[in-house]
Amino acid sequence: MLLLICPYCGVAAEETELAPGGEAHLKRFGPGSSDAEFEAYLFARKNPKGVHFERWRHAYGCGKWFLAARCTATLEVFGTYPAQTSGPPDDIIDRIKARRPDWKGFA
């Protein structure tokens, strides 16, 4: 059972206090988007064995959504950060690169 630190309230919250929200940093496509763009937005999700970025809500705490970078294979957590960003912050990227030198980077 995961333990993630909520970046808003600083609590190390266990998984039962959180609600999962799937892949992070999706770009919304609305009216005017092509079929391919919209299909990717709705359905195409990464499923990596390794570094992954995902959304969690501190549902039984402050109620805020935050993002987590972790390894899906080992469950190592590289960091959590507020959701008001379109990409992972640099310090998280640096930490992942230090831990996973062969990581191809955030795309």
């Binding site: 609600a19 929200g21 919304r28 809500r57 805020k64 959504w65 008001q84």
Partner: peptide, 13 residues
């Protein structure tokens, strides 16, 4: 309520 907060926090912050 969660749906509203999701869009407010994560898309139209």
């Amino acid at each position: 309520h969660g749906w509203m907060e999701d869009w407010l926090q994560c898309e139209w912050w």
